[in-house]
């Protein structure tokens, strides 16, 4: 009988050892977080973009098909509804503009810099990272479109997450509910500052709310802009439950994100505050 670990693979085992070693070195570099592998990742990620599109094609195509097959009547109704919405939004924006102009004048009185509106870029989802313990997506705008690591991502209802990796054509976005994500927030009602952490599969918690902090169920959280990574005053979430145990120092404050994290196909990447210069000459981190 042939022995179990016998013949005919003289070359293979050293090769397997070498490959294991290579993998361990790569993982070590990854763990060190020095970013040496970023160029290689960028090249490989560009190569797999077609695969991402094919995998996502059912959802990319459905939108077009729905449009293609919808009746004239339905399109007209939809158009009318959108026009109404646009009118309402315009009226609202006009009001906001007036308030913001007034705000700028007041800030001038206090000698502080006027806040500029943010430049945004619309991006479409092309992949959801397939791991139940993580909350990450890939969108179809990358370095070539001006996206950079650290930029905030929002949708029409609130903060979505932030860009953690870019390639020329795509970028990876860490959602606010990922267990490794945290965002500085402020409670609108009581002006209390806190840090909202993602919970992954568990509930999302506010990190540092002591039991005496003025936070109640239903409180709205907006980004505080502290740390300067996220723009100020975008809705982040709503407090869904506050558990105070007198024997503990901290309250358990649970929150749910405002953004439609699992339903939005289109998101906005906040490129930074818009400036007078053309975008090419603007440095990546637009701060004067």
């Amino acid at each position: 009988m042939e022995s179990l670990f016998g013949v005919r693979q003289g070359q293979i085992r050293p090769l397997l050892l070498a490959l294991t070693l290579a993998s361990c070195v790569l993982l070590g570099i990854e763990k060190a977080g020095v970013g040496w592998l970023q160029p290689a990742r960028s090249v490989l990620a560009t190569a797999v973009v077609p695969v991402q599109y094919v995998a996502e094609s059912p959802y990319l195509v459905i939108g077009h098909l729905v449009e293609f097959f919808s009746t004239r009547d339905r399109l007209m109704r939809r158009n009318a509804a959108l026009e109404r919405e646009l009118l309402l939004m315009k009226a609202q924006t006009a009001r906001t503009d007036a308030i913001s102009a007034e705000n700028d004048r007041l800030r001038e009185l206090f000698n502080s810099r006027a806040r500029l509106p943010d430049d945004v870029l619309i991006a479409e989802l092309i992949e959801v990272v397939p791991d139940a313990t993580r909350r990450e997506i890939v969108v179809d705008k990358g370095g070539a479109h001006g996206v950079a690591v650290g930029q905030a991502v929002i949708d029409s209802t609130g903060v979505f997450g932030q860009v953690v990796e870019t390639t020329p054509l795509t970028s990876r976005v860490l959602l606010v509910t990922d267990p490794s994500h945290a965002i500085p927030v402020q409670v609108i009602r009581s002006k209390v500052f806190a840090i909202a952490s993602g919970g992954g599969r568990g509930p999302n918690l506010l990190d540092d709310a002591s039991i005496t902090t003025d936070i109640v169920e239903g409180d709205e959280l907006v980004s505080s802009g502290l740390g300067r990574r996220f723009p100020r005053d975008y809705p982040v979430g709503v407090v869904t439950d506050v558990v105070t145990d007198p024997t503990l120092t901290y309250a358990q404050v649970m929150w749910e994100p405002s953004a439609a994290l699992t339903r939005s196909r289109h998101v906005l990447v906040v490129l930074g505050e818009s400036q007078e210069e053309p975008p090419e000459t603007r440095p990546a981190e637009a701060e004067g």
């Binding site: 490959l19 993982l27 763990k31 990742r41």
Partner: peptide
């Protein structure tokens, strides 16, 4: 072979946003 499988693995790694080489 293991070598080609290892190289193919790199593409899977970036696809699932995992660490390279795993």
């Amino acid at each position: 072979g293991p070598m080609s499988a290892w190289v193919v693995g790199l593409f899977f790694d970036v696809l699932v946003a995992g660490p390279l080489g795993l």
